[in-house]
Each structure stands twice: as structure tokens, then as C-alpha cells.
Amino acid sequence: MEYIKPEKIIELFKEKFNGSVTNNKIETKTAGLKKNSYSLIWLEIELKDFKEAVKFLCTIQFPHFAIISDNDTGEEIKLTYHFSIYYGERFKEISLNLATSLPKNNLKIPSITDLIPGAQTSEREIKEMMGVTFEELPDLPNVFLPIDFTKGVYPLRKDEKGVYPLSKNGKHIGGNITDKEEEVKKVE
């Protein structure tokens, strides 16, 4: 297996997905007294090329998949897939964070479980927490939320589909809960 430098990896991605790579960044971190360094890559890619990008990543080295992190930015949901490649050798490992944005009106993304079966748990988590549909992901029951959890409520969303945030100032962001409290008042 040939070691490709982080700069070269970004170039390869740019070459392959011309124009699709919207954002890229290399971070170099140092640690300890000797100030040895390691690298992180941040990539953002358009949704249409996302699956191909993961496929391409698998050809570099079979990546270790950590987790998908979710971010509700308002208009879009941004999913960041955290991979790492070149593990097994000192200072060689590169953390590769591949982000893509999904429009709120069409929350669909191809599943990567056919490439990396270990991503299943994380995809199921995002599915139940954010309401993102993963195409070709088998319809399995909830991982973390109760099986009979209210349909259409996604706890980590920050819009009207989220749940009541128990924040200090009690500011309501979610919509459905406000209705609920009014109902409670009516009953009283």
C-alpha cells in the first residue's frame, strides 16, 4: 500500500469530482515536546457525488469509519462522515472528514452500508435522530429511541420537528411542544 500525502489526496478528490468539492482544508496538529505532527483533512462534497467519493476513498485504503455527525443549519442538514485512513503506522494516520449537505425538503442520502457494513448503527441513529432517509438501508427498528417513539419527532433537529429544548432561558425552538403546553393548560 502506497502512502499518499494529504495534499495529494485532496488533489485526487478534486480531479475525480471536479467542481463537486466545495470546501477543502488540511489541518496539521502538533503535540508533545518533540512537536511531531499529524494531519487532518476536511472535505465538503456535493450530495450527488457523495457515494462515489466514499467509493473512491475505499480504493485508497479501506477506511475506518468512526461516526456521522449531524448539524441542523436551518435550511439544510449537514452530515459529516468521520473516517480515518492509514492506521497501523505511527504518525501516518489521516483523519478524513467528509461532509455533505442535504436540503430540508428532500432528506435523502445513499446508504454506505454496502461499502462499510459497520456504518449501520450510525446511519440508523441519524435516521431516528434527524429524520434523514438512507436509501437502501434496511428498515430496522430504532437503535436508541424507544420503538414506539412518536413518529415525526426527531430529537436532534432544531426546527419545528425537534423536541422541546430544556435550555436555561426556556426559549422554545421546537413548535409542537408549545401546542402541547397550551393543551395542558386547557385541561387544567
Binding site: A31, K34, K35, N36, S84, Y87, G88
Partner: peptide, 14 residues
């Protein structure tokens, strides 16, 4: 695979 070896952070880098 061990993060302490692959991507040494903190004092593990030394």
C-alpha cells in the same frame, strides 16, 4: 490500530 500509535496526540507523541 491504536490512536496512541497512529495519530499520537498529547504526550503520546513523545
Amino acid at each position: 490500530k491504536d490512536v496512541r500509535q497512529d495519530q499520537p496526540y498529547s504526550a503520546y507523541a513523545d
